[in-house]
Amino acid sequence: MERRKFIQSTAAAGALAGIGSLGLLSFTAAKKPKHITILHTNDVHSHIEPFDNGHAQYPGMGGAARRYTLINQIRQENPHTLLLDAGDIFQGTPYFNYYGGELEFKLMSKMRYDAATIGNHDFDNGIDGLLAQLPHAKFPFINANYNFDNTVLEGRIKPYQVFVRDGIKIGVFGVGIELKGLVAKKHYKETEYHNPIDTAKTIVKQLREEEKCELVICLSHLGYEYRDDKVSDQKLAAATKDIDLIIGGHTHTFLPKPTVALNAIGEKVLINQVGWAGVNIGRIDFYLDSSGKKNGGGAAIIV
């Protein structure tokens, strides 16, 4: 797809927090630049096969086996790649109704997904239905704002995961949408929902200050944007700092290009979501160096 590109300058969204003695760096030898690629999907909704060629909106588009070809190509190009999913893996084709999500998880494992967060439809066979399929997933599920302590998922879901790619520490945390009113109580049971913004602030601080992460990615199933006060990726971006990228889902939003939003301290943060049903994959490339331009310099964002 031919894309119109333009460049925006940004302060390197808080990637500097917690990293000391930057002022000295300009006098030391520059380190080798690093390149990290983030690939992401959302709301694939059991679309394992491509749409029919006669489909009105997405003729012949999508399909897990084709997605894997593209993922492999990109991994050959850059082995320092993370593959993430923003939830609603389940529900939408008979593959889910017949196999309960087994095939979805097995294929994602074969494609070597690094992590996924939990969408509301991932509770469609109840919290027990999700637990039953977890053994088929060789990647972690991450969510920080659901408390599963009084459920069968206790201890099975991590709030975040730190990945190291080419020596770069990438903190990925997950946030999910309020389940009440969206998912039957008998399905989510005693899962407690906490405010995603408050949760994000705490986790991001931890990732930056304790885990010393150089990139922080939020894997969100909150939804891109709402007319009312409901928490969305846009609201999360505006209310937090030190997040480099929000990968969204839930609203099945097709964006003409990744959104550059402003965070709580006026720095730029990327938000991306790639529709649904696996018709697209999102690709974000981070080029990092040790020039350490703090405030004012920062990254060029090309979308």
């Binding site: 940004t10 390197a12 969204a13 990637a15 500097l16 990293i19 003695s21 930057l22 760096l25 380190k31 630049p33 690093k34 020596g167 770069i168 520490k169 150089e214 990139l215 480099d244 990327l270 974000i284 490339d285 981070f286 080029y287 990092l288 160096d289 040790s290 020039s291 350490g292 331009k293 703090k294 990254a299 060029a300 964002i301 090309i302």
Partner: peptide, 8 residues
């Protein structure tokens, strides 16, 4: 490490 994003 002291890496920060220069280009995205």
């Amino acid at each position: 490490d002291n890496y920060t994003p220069a280009r995205i």
